[in-house]
Design a protein around this nucleic acid. Structure first.
Length: 258
DNA sequence: ATGGTCGCACCGCGA
C-alpha cells in the first residue's frame, strides 16, 4: 500500500467544489492540503466532502486565505495557526496527523510588490513558520509541509525567470527565506523525482498564461528526510488546470510507501 | 486551442 498526498490551491472552495469532487473521485488521494478556501468554517462544504468519503479539518476565513486538510481517514491532533502568540487573523496554516504522517497545509503570503507592506509581512511570516517547525516538528519524524509557498525556489521553476527576477515570488531574499525554512530539514519531493526538469504549478489567468505554459512552480510538498526516503513518485496534475472553471493552480502529488 | 483573468464583495482589492 502507498499513501498519496496532494497540495492544491483551489482559489475558492465554493467556486471549485464540483471540480474538487471530480478530482477526488478521479484520483482518490489519501490526503489533500487545500489553500485559498476564501470561506468561513460555517460555509465550508463539510457535508458534500463527507459524502465523497473525505473528512476535513479547516482553518477558514471570510473572503481571503483559508486552509484545510482533507483525508479519507479522520485527521487527529489538529493545530491551527502559527501558535506564536502574535495578533494575526490571517488563516494560513493548519496541521494534523493522517496515517502516521504529520501534515501541514500552508498558504504563504503572496507579498504583493516588493515596496508594499505585504512584502515584509511575507518575510516575517516565513521566519515565523521556521520557528513553528522548530517548536512543533521533530525533523526525524515523518512530516510533510504542503502548500502554496508563493516562492519559486530556482530559475528552473520559472518559464521566464528574467521577468520574475525582482518579484516577491522569486527574488534572492524570498529564496533565502525559503532556504532557511528548508534548512530545518525538508526535501522538495517533486524536485527529488524530477531533477533538472521544468515543471510548473501556477499559471496566471491573464495573458494566456496556461496556453503559453508561462508558469511558475510555487506549490510544493516538502518532506522530512525520513518521509522523503519513502517517496515513490511526484507529479503535477496539469489536466486540472485545463478548462473554464479551473483554479489558476494545479494540484501537486507525492506518493509515499507505507 | 477553439480563448484572450478570476473570485469575492462591492463598485475595488488581492492574486
Amino acid at each position: 500500500m502507498s499513501i498519496a498526498v496532494v497540495t492544491w490551491n483551489v482559489n475558492s472552495i465554493r467556486a471549485r467544489l464540483d471540480r474538487l469532487l471530480a478530482f477526488l473521485a478521479r484520483h482518490s488521494p489519501d490526503a489533500v492540503c487545500l489553500q485559498e478556501l476564501k470561506v468561513e468554517d460555517a460555509q465550508f462544504p463539510f457535508v458534500e466532502l463527507r459524502a465523497a468519503g473525505y473528512h476535513a479539518v479547516v482553518a477558514g476565513q471570510k473572503t481571503y486565505n483559508g486552509v484545510a486538510i482533507l483525508a479519507k481517514e479522520e485527521p487527529t491532533d489538529v493545530l491551527r495557526g502559527l501558535d506564536d502568540g502574535e495578533d494575526d487573523a490571517q488563516a494560513r496554516l493548519i496541521a494534523a496527523t493522517v496515517r502516521g504522517i504529520r501534515i501541514a497545509s500552508a498558504y504563504f503570503p503572496n507579498g504583493g510588490e516588493p515596496a508594499s507592506p505585504k512584502y515584509p509581512y511575507k518575510l516575517a511570516w516565513m521566519r515565523r513558520l521556521r520557528r513553528w517547525l522548530d517548536r512543533h516538528v521533530d525533523p526525524a519524524s515523518p512530516f510533510v509541509l504542503g502548500g502554496d509557498f508563493n516562492v519559486a525556489p530556482d530559475d528552473l521553476d520559472i518559464k521566464n525567470p528574467e521577468h520574475w527576477r525582482d518579484s516577491v515570488l522569486a527574488n534572492d531574499e524570498v529564496r533565502a527565506a525559503l532556504a532557511e525554512i528548508r534548512a530545518f530539514g525538508l526535501v522538495d519531493v517533486l524536485r527529488k523525482h524530477h531533477p533538472g526538469e521544468a515543471i510548473y504549478s501556477w499559471w496566471d489567468y491573464r495573458m494566456l498564461g496556461f496556453p503559453k505554459n508561462d508558469g511558475l512552480r510555487i506549490d510544493h510538498l516538502d518532506a522530512t528526510p525520513a518521509l522523503a526516503a519513502r517517496s515513490e513518485q511526484a507529479f503535477v496534475d496539469r489536466e486540472e488546470r485545463k478548462g473554464k472553471a479551473a483554479s489558476d493552480h494545479a494540484p501537486v502529488f507525492a506518493v509515499f510507501s507505507e
